[in-house]
Design a protein around this nucleic acid. Sequence first.
DNA 1: ATGAAAGCGCTAACAA
DNA 2: TTGTTAGCGCTTTCAT
Lengths: 319, 319
Amino acid sequence: MAVTIRDVARQAQVSVSTVSRALSAPGLVKETTRQRVLEIVARLGYQPNRAARSLITGRTGNLGIVVPDLLNPFFPSVLRGVQTRAGEAGTSVFFCDSREDADTEAELVRTMAAQVDGVVLCASLLSDETIVDLAALTPLVLINRIVPGVSSVLMDSANGMDQMVTHLESLGHKNYVYLGGPAAAWSNNRRMQGLADRAHLLGSFDPNFNGGYKAAEQALKTGATAFIAYNDLMALGALAHLAANNVKVPDEISVTGFDDILYATMCSPALTTVHMPTETAGEAAVDLLATLLDGGPAEHRELPTTLVPRSSTAPPPQA
Amino acid sequence: MAVTIRDVARQAQVSVSTVSRALSAPGLVKETTRQRVLEIVARLGYQPNRAARSLITGRTGNLGIVVPDLLNPFFPSVLRGVQTRAGEAGTSVFFCDSREDADTEAELVRTMAAQVDGVVLCASLLSDETIVDLAALTPLVLINRIVPGVSSVLMDSANGMDQMVTHLESLGHKNYVYLGGPAAAWSNNRRMQGLADRAHLLGSFDPNFNGGYKAAEQALKTGATAFIAYNDLMALGALAHLAANNVKVPDEISVTGFDDILYATMCSPALTTVHMPTETAGEAAVDLLATLLDGGPAEHRELPTTLVPRSSTAPPPQA
DNA sequence: ATGAAAGCGCTAACAA
DNA sequence: TTGTTAGCGCTTTCAT
């Protein structure tokens, strides 16, 4: 078996409680004793048993995050932010991919709830009611979703959509079409709202490359001069479909996305999109979770998004 | 506080041990008793406290995985495989991103070791010795790395490289250059070996888009007609650099990658690359870990890779 | 400032 | 087949 607190206590010639205090309540032990204990701890390579500790404290020192699709670079990027901030606090991170399925998502949160101090839920597909239920089960922070009474971090897509529309209209586009993501995705609805009734609304498609590919096929029939995709992955799919059909982007049709994933700069033409502060959002989510764990109130944090014009948008062709 | 095993025992009019057995050793209790217990469990929504359980069993029911770069789609894809297989076994997964730093990597494994039953280490940058040390600390499975005595899953890049070279030579290329990844990366050396002395070797570059961009700059000076990048991300960077310099791919220069990440099909021209069975590798790693946990021996599993010819390779220009 | 002792919720001998 | 009991390693009163 590994080295326990008793081993340390024996070697340091103190009681186990003193060792415990030296480690987690430094103020309560004489400095010299503390030094001696710490030395032995280092020498023996003692690491407190987390199970034993959490059995008493009720805290696990872990946090969970569930995302809909790990293969969409948007989410790994959020994960990084979460890991960074959690790591600073000595917290470990469980992850789960719900594969864009609402039932799976709820199930995963419930499973996680049993072994973490709180969970971060990204781009949830669940109903408000279910989310409220879940929030009663475990401290919960949402990313890109708003539910009254539940903490959340929002990367403001409505505003991003405004910037996008302004951009397209300033280029002279009048007839554009929205390639919609999952109907249950809050951001999707939010983005549609930002569009009001100024665009054809197509949907709902899988929020990935294939979804965008299919969406573009339909979008072509609308005669629109600009395609606004729900996210970059869909935009990339649309780009592929247009290329396959010899439609020139941006000369004949402009294409835009959301998220500003790494590949938005790599594709050709480079994608005009709305940048999302994903890592910051991940960090903020951990902060809000910490507040919750300290007994603080549910909070809401809004992060700004920025339009990044690249080469996939241009004035529409002359009629 | 949550509902405990005692609550269940009281309601079911049995002892706690019977409840415990009903849940984890069904064969040892009378069927009718078991039913009664299960019913109460369901009614009260009882969930065993994992901390208490693992305090006794010494098992956490968790597993960890550390990858060098979550932003390289190759790794999320492995993660998915790991999650899938682990989920089937009721095991939760911790993840960590070492950001391509060896020290961080070792540190993360050590930290994880304290709270998981085993860890999966992807594309490790550590020395053989360090890995052996780590393996002594916790059950360890490597992905894309071989260290004697340590379990591993290998996606065979040497063979992939063979296929690649054969492909290029059959197209007529004689003068090609390898854009190398991290010197400490085992796969990188493995791929270089596959190349023997048949190519210029450039390196080492960051195994990402920017690294590839820079590598291409140097590679251009070699006069080679084909660039073989360490991975797809680098190949994508190389593509970008060539496009920026009006070098036509594949007419003037052929470019290839490794991994077959999603974006290898999305870029233009679509990338000729070597497909890696990433999800399968993740699953296999979990299986090997399970073997280890059951007291089994270290094992080695090799997974085949396949060349996927796309549009980024063609015969070299006529001299 | 330190120690003794209780007990967190559970599993695993050992008894019956 | 079931119950009793002794801890797993730690934190935390309560004494001293």
